[in-house]
Each structure stands twice: as C-alpha cells, then as structure tokens.
C-alpha cells in the first residue's frame, strides 16, 4: 500500500492509503504503484485518482508537484478540490 497525502495551501485534503495513484503530470498522466523509485514531477491540470485502500477517490488539481519517497506519495498542489 502507498501512503498518500494530498495537500493544498489551505488544508490537507486527504491522508490515507491507496494501492495506486494516477496523477496529471505536466506532460501527461503518471501512474504510481508500490515500490516506485523516488521521484519528483511537476503537475499540470486534471484529475488525480486514488484507488484501493479507502476506495476510489478523485480530486481536481492544478499545478504543484508530486513527490514519491519510499512508499509515500505526496501531492502538493495550489488548487485542489474533491470531486465525486
């Protein structure tokens, strides 16, 4: 499982576990599974999807970055809203 946190300037929108993360990177979508190499990438505009763990979740995000270290994924974004 991956430990995922989604952080916006105003608050931490999500903190919990997920089996996979699909994020809109600046040049297209990027998928993260367990045991990913440490990575940092800029994000573009689009939908961030988490699945597994606490079920499906998605967020509309714009800008910021994604960081993977060990099995924790941090999505830090300027604009984020939870979408259904």
């Amino acid at each position: 499982m991956l430990r995922v946190s989604v952080i916006s300037p105003e608050s931490v929108l999500f903190e919990g576990e997920a089996a996979s993360v699909v994020a809109p990177a600046f040049d297209g979508e990027v998928g993260i599974l367990e045991n990913h190499a440490p990575m940092m990438t800029l994000l573009g505009k689009g939908t961030l999807r988490l699945s597994g763990g606490a079920g499906e979740r998605s967020f509309a995000i714009e800008g910021g970055f994604l960081q993977v270290v060990g099995n924790s994924v941090r999505i830090v974004t300027e604009k984020a809203t939870t979408s259904a």
Binding site: F26, D27, A37, P38, M39, M40, T41, L42
Partner: peptide
C-alpha cells in the same frame, strides 16, 4: 534521496 526529476530540477 536520489530523485528522478521530471522535467528537471531547474524547471521544478
């Protein structure tokens, strides 16, 4: 940690 950086440290 030795990050893979996309697109590059500078761009980030």
């Amino acid at each position: 940690p030795d990050y893979l950086l996309f697109p590059s440290a500078e761009a980030i």
